[in-house]
């Protein structure tokens, strides 16, 4: 994306939402959607731009969540500082996992599986370690004060998560335009060629992992402040790893708005399916799954990519989707 204007516009429009919509149902929906978008934005840096598909972004989400919660509860540290520490911890875990995985030369499915395994190891450790509250989990005290980073109003939570999403949008924009971003996409397209051109692929991927980890960890930190409770399944469970990769790919991996669009679409789909099917347990998720498959089938390069694809379709009769078939 060449210009910053669309980002500024999107942020401005989203900022205005609570001024126009007062329904807490809608605000809560948007808060959760933006939180998932944020987790997806983290994934997108590494997976979308760097081509390194992680199945275990729960590593970062969970680390951010636990660090934020534990620092407050066990050590009495201010929530804002704990939030920041959670993000830093996410980046630090990114260094460790990235260093191990990339130095060993893991790519493709192997990288995906090693992240999955790390998430699982952390989940099991968190479910037995005393510091995380083990099986009981960690409960953050309800304390609706600005200093405790808890707000009476859903709108303030909304602006907080929107601010985080906005920062992540700007970071993504900066990455995309930087030399680092060019190296990163070069590694994604052809790692061996990039190496031949003198790109330090391991360092580049490691850098992406750190940024990615920090952003997804921020989503975890936010989760704790919003729901005030975390246990090993919430923190390191497969659900968030799946959400973090689902939303950018649906929206458009390797695009600035992909995760945001994907999260809003996926979450809206879930609600829509619920409306259509009424109160039959499971049926809404069946509809959701079918529509999900249909969306993937219709927009192989993500929803953001669909626009470009449609343009191409009008230009020539061959769709972009068919070219890659077979």
């Amino acid at each position: 994306m060449k210009s910053f204007a669309p980002i500024a516009l999107v942020i401005a429009v989203l900022t205005a939402v609570p001024l126009l919509v007062h329904s807490n149902v809608v605000l809560n929906f948007l808060v959760v959607a933006l939180m998932i978008a944020l987790a997806g934005q983290g994934w997108n840096i590494l997976g979308g731009y760097g081509g390194q598909y992680s199945f275990g972004h729960a590593i970062f989400f969970g680390t951010g969540a636990y660090v934020t919660a534990i620092l407050q509860v066990q050590y009495g540290i201010n929530a804002w500082l704990a939030f920041g520490a959670g993000i830093v911890a996410g980046a630090a875990v990114g260094v460790v996992v990235g260093w191990l995985a990339f130095r060993a030369g893991l790519r493709g499915s192997y990288f995906a599986l090693v992240t999955l395994a790390f998430a699982e190891v952390l989940r099991i450790l968190a479910s037995v370690a005393p510091i995380t509250g083990a099986g009981v989990g960690t409960l953050v005290k309800l304390d609706l004060r600005f200093a405790a980073l808890q707000f009476e109003s859903r709108a303030l939570f909304y602006w907080l998560i929107l601010a985080l999403v906005a920062v992540a949008l700007v970071v993504t924009y900066a990455v995309e335009r930087s030399r680092f971003g060019a190296w990163l996409t070069a590694v994604r397209e052809n790692e061996d060629a990039a190496r031949a051109l003198g790109v330090d692929a391991v360092a580049v991927k490691l850098g992406a992992m750190v940024i990615s980890g920090a952003i997804t960890a921020a989503a975890g930190c936010f989760y704790v402040q919003y729901f005030l409770f975390v246990d090993s399944h919430i923190a390191y469970g497969a659900w968030i790893s799946v959400e973090a990769l689902l939303t950018p790919i649906i929206g458009g991996a390797g695009t600035i708005f992909g995760p945001l669009v994907g999260a809003l679409v996926v979450k809206a789909l879930g609600e829509g399916a619920l409306l259509v099917t009424g109160q039959a347990p499971g049926l809404d998720l069946v509809v959701f799954g079918i529509v999900l498959i249909a969306v993937v089938g219709l927009s192989p390069r993500g929803i953001v990519g669909l626009r470009q694809q449609l343009g191409a379709r009008f230009g020539s009769r061959r769709g972009a989707g068919e070219a890659s078939r077979g």
Binding site: L285, F288, G289, L292, I293, V296
Partner: peptide, 10 residues
């Protein structure tokens, strides 16, 4: 990946 994920949900 996404399609198998969708299938699992369905």
């Amino acid at each position: 990946l996404l399609v198998t994920l969708g299938l699992a949900v369905v």
